[in-house]
Design a protein around this nucleic acid. Structure first.
Lengths: 372, 372
DNA sequence: GAAGTCTGGGAAAGCACTTTCCAAAGACTA
DNA sequence: TAGTCTTTGGAAAGTGCTTTCCCAGACTTC
């Protein structure tokens, strides 16, 4: 009885690209309207409840047609018509790295619950990857883009990225960064330096006096901040960090392994080694074991991040805990926050020193140095 | 000199939603055409190189206008016009779980390099999450949807999912699954049973005779397959697995910890414990340590998956290696493969037993049983 | 009972693109 | 030199949706 001429439908289906996809589905709002015997306008209004009142009778007919046809609004078309989309882009260095996947987990959880679509890219090695992805997100007219991870010290590259972000925000998009506050956008900023400084003080308080650092790649600012913070913390205990005992390596398990190899090869045998992240620390522990050195008795080892999956390595790793998942949630929160103040917001995230068995106290010495 | 009347532009900008976003950008193809002094058609043709020849002179003018205006095509609009998008949806249970993040990493790497946009959702606890996300992807007119992870044995729920997938594929989308071959779509299928069976044989060959299994959640088929495979492998050595020594728990570190607690509480002291994945195995090791039982001497422990980040736990974990990243790449490959045969393809992925120190050989006994 | 105010439906314009179809101009053949 | 074919540009129709604008009818108000 509600059947109505499908003239409109046939007209549109007679030609065009839709025909190709027409193997079984591809129901449009026009089809729904035809079936319900109402105008396209009315059908649209029923689906966008709130746009304007529609009589209950009409609404029922439309809803029934929707159900019968299995209609689902084309979000792309809707985005074009309204000029705003529900996608947010996320850029990480490597999604398989638990640091990033933990942050992403928090992000995705919040986004999912709000109906946002999260698009992820792993930029891995390619320095320009971030810029390219922001550009892609601009093309996609994404609502926001979230950059997770350390900035490098490549000024040129950063300037390009900032320019691209600027184009993105000018087009109405929102940009959020999780990491250093260097892009001039809303930022969730882990306090790397302060965390490493606190760690250094704690380790010194445990009685350790000679230190080495397994630093990340040269250009990576997160690594640099952590090293500097650590150095500052030691200085409070009048301990100097010999530049030769700072060994660089990749920000990975293998990087930690290699860096520890380098350290051992140099003949150094510090009381305690600080690897600038947990993943490296685990590699370092493996290398020590291969050498027959058992932590913490042979050498103490500390990391940074408190990665969940690594909480059960043996010996349990002393580290600085960052609330990674929470940081992801906070980033999502910034995206969703309606108000947009003139100045970008920077939310500092403190780290918490977690002492575990990988750095047991060292027996006291002759003259205890002054406390910090 | 190439400046041209912007009548068209002004007309469009005079009203409509675009005005809101107009704070600085929002350049359209019409703007480019106006600036270059050509028609919209020509501008479009230049950007879609290959759609039709355009004279070099025109092309140059258009390209210059694009550069000057910083134009970037609106992909959503393009998708609407062409009827096909470049997004693929990925559903995982928990992106922070290294099993999923490793697969996702492979997937994203391939997708990124082909210009596909990867949208991820974590369905976590919610059983209906997968179906909802497939639905969202249909609304998004995604090119493909990739479901990663174990099916549950909830028939009703699976039927709903299959129906939703069917609607998705009827609309022209492609569906790929990484896990059990239960959805009737192209599948990358890890050989869970065979892998667990091989593991059981290897463990028996090492001299272990009494076993327990830390199984995953009751309904999870991956866990079930692994348990059954393990049981079959033991049977080849005439070892029976007592149902009481199969303890269920969450598919997580804590689940492994709890399950091991339950096992110990029951008084069982098997030679060897098989945790159906590495993450659980790590939890189990932690629980053993808390009890003062040191693996492998006190009790041998084996896992499954060979998670990269867990490769350095101590003692090194015996496990069954799955090429997780590669599996993600394969899934992406199936999405990209142009041909679409009638029957869904199923690609089995064998696991490889990796014996490490967590299951050292057990001293031989009086009567060695027959080999499998 | 005329004037004014809601109400709710629909035609049509709009969003930013692609693609079809037409026409003019040039290149080529006979 | 006429006739055909091949380029190449542009007008307009198209994609699937939202939203503006108009209008008919129902309801109040004095």
């Amino acid at each position: 009885m509600t059947d109505v001429s499908q003239g409109g439908r046939r007209r549109r289906r007679a030609n065009g690209a839709a025909a190709a996809r027409d193997a079984g589905a591809g129901v449009t709002l026009q089809d729904v309207a035809d079936r319900a015997g109402v105008s396209l306008t009315t059908a649209s209004r029923v689906l966008n409840a709130g746009s304007r009142r529609v009589s209950a009778a009409m609404a029922d007919r439309v809803n029934q047609a929707v159900a019968e046809l299995g209609y689902l609004a084309n979000l792309q078309a809707r985005a074009v018509a309204t000029g705003q989309s529900n996608t947010v882009g996320v850029v990480v260095h490597d999604i398989a790295d638990p640091y990033f996947s933990s942050i992403a987990a928090g992000l995705i959880e919040v986004a999912d619950s709000r109906g946002l679509l999260v698009c992820i890219s792993s930029t891995a090695a390619r320095e320009a990857g971030e810029r390219e992805y922001v550009s892609l997100m601009r093309a996609q007219r994404a609502r926001a883009v979230i950059l997770i991870g350390s900035r490098s010290d490549d000024e040129r590259c950063r300037a390009d990225l900032v320019a691209e972000i600027s184009a993105f925000t000018r087009a109405g998009g929102r940009a959020v960064c999780v990491g250093q506050d260097l892009l001039g956008v809303d930022t969730i900023m882990p306090e790397n330096a302060a965390g490493a400084e606190a760690l250094a003080r704690s380790l010194a308080a445990l009685g350790h006096r000679s230190f080495a650092v397994l630093a990340g790649p040269h250009g990576l600012l997160t690594a640099r901040d952590r090293v500097e913070g650590f150095r500052a913390g030691l200085r409070a205990w009048s301990v100097e960090l010999d530049p030769r005992s700072v060994v660089h390596g990749e920000f990975t398990r293998d990087g930690g392994y290699e860096a520890m190899s380098g350290l051992l090869a140099s003949g150094a045998r510090p009381d305690c080694v600080f690897a600038v992240n947990d993943v490296m620390a685990v590699g370092a522990l493996a290398r020590l074991r291969a050498e027959g050195i058992i932590a913490p008795a042979g050498m103490a080892v500390a990391g940074f991040d408190d990665i969940l999956t690594l909480r059960d390595v043996y010996p349990p790793l002393t580290t600085v805990r960052l609330p990674l998942k929470r940081m992801g949630e906070m980033a999502a929160g910034l995206v969703l926050a309606g108000d947009h103040p003139g100045r970008p917001r920077v939310v500092p995230v403190p780290g918490e020193v977690i002492l575990r068995d990988s750095t047991l106290p060292r027996p006291p010495r002759a003259q205890p140095p002054p406390p910090g």
